[in-house]
Design a protein around this nucleic acid. Sequence first.
DNA 1: ACGGCGC
Length: 285
Amino acid sequence: MEGNSGGTGGGGGNDVELLCKTLQVEHKLFYFDLKENPRGRYLKISEKTSATRSTIIVPFDGISWFLDLFNYYVNSDKQDVFSKELQLDSKVFYFDVGENRRGRFLKVSEASVSRNRSTIIVPAGSARDEGWAAFRNILAEINEASRLFILPNQQQNSEASERLVGLSDDVGAGFISGHSSQPTASDLTVDRTIDLPPPDEIGNLGVSKVIRADQKRFFFDLGSNNRGHFLRISEVAGSDRSSIILPLSGLKQFYEMVGHFVEITKDRIEGMAGANVRTVDPPQR
DNA sequence: ACGGCGC
């Protein structure tokens, strides 16, 4: 299976797992593994039945396209869905709807020069395409979480991982090494933050945070809608709530602006004297 | 517990 040349020890086996999810649709089990190696990130989707296992590798930048396509198949009436092709890097993914006596299914095939064609087949489900919808929801979660939620096992010092360059054959050529400009976990961690049990709404990825200041609470929630991804910051005092919706494209500016005001007011901020002063320099690059 | 795909 994993015929890897050069004695490096297995295709993708040493890659860092950023996020793992499983989904059961009828009797199939789908594994979603967001992984990272020095060449970039990718999403490995495996279909497992009792007898077979099949895997496709989606380049990181293709995740949102997969999400869009699953949305298309979920939301379209069955009489007007078409097959789709998605070209990513050197790969082509084919999406085809089929039907047999077991029901409708979506066949997703990956074709690339270096690998044999591999295919996963996602049952539509019995009602309202709920199998596809569940698959779509997982993709949405991964798509959202992967952009902001840098997991703790993602090393800040990349020295160790730099020695692993070229290790994995699981990733097609032409990958983007896209992990340089992302904020680190500590950049996004606010002092006095406490973990919040999952609240209100779908699309919330368990990355909700709350901070308290005086009598107010501020909730930070990731979300997305058809216009993109955003951070919602809600001020809750008593029973009143008001929110600002911050597109992720503006998050860094927001961060820098807050840092500016922290900087110019820090001698008046309680608890920030002396060694506790935590300057909030904008991340370089 | 399916079963599609494609060889």
